[in-house]
Amino acid sequence: MDAAQNIAHEIQHDLESDGEQFLTFILAGEEYGVDILRVQEIKGWDSVTPIPNTPEYIRGVINLRGTIVPIIDLRRRFQLEAVEYGPMTVVIVLRVENPDGGKSRVMGLVVDAVSDVYNVPEGAIKAAPDFGSVVDVNFVQGLATLEDVMVIMLDIDRLLNADELSAVEHII
């Protein structure tokens, strides 16, 4: 087998076994992952326009090239200790699908820092254990160990549709 064939074979192998790619980010020392196909862009933290009468974790809205996009502080969402935003603080802009078949929405997540992009082979994601009522694992898609680090895979559709963000819509 010559070199070229070798490489081609390797690429083929990669493509077949890759499963999915995940973008990971750091939040309070833990690494979380989201499906990279959902990520629209990553931008630095900039000031937002706060929205009255919304939960504290909704920091406000920004102007993303002419559309109004809400920004959610994931630390506050997970009831972690809030920190000052620094130069590493980034906003990951994500596309959130509506499980009811409605329109998809664009939202921004404030996280401590962006970490890496991993290829996660199929089957590497294990279901999260049940923590009872201590932690709501509804929005955890599973856990995966990648290069000796445990990554918590988030189901952003569940996370960002589950609560406040859409609750009012249903009432109306």
């Binding site: 326009t49 929205i51 009255p52 809205v61 559309t67 939202m107 819509e169």
Partner: peptide, 27 residues
């Protein structure tokens, strides 16, 4: 007028948002 509902939801007391000359959002 830009809708808040496109990516968020309706907020009581606000009818929408707009983008000011300096690029910031005003409600």
């Amino acid at each position: 007028i830009k809708s808040l509902e496109t990516n968020f939801r309706r907020v009581e007391g606000l009818s929408g948002a707009t983008i000011l000359g300096d690029g910031t959002v005003a409600l």
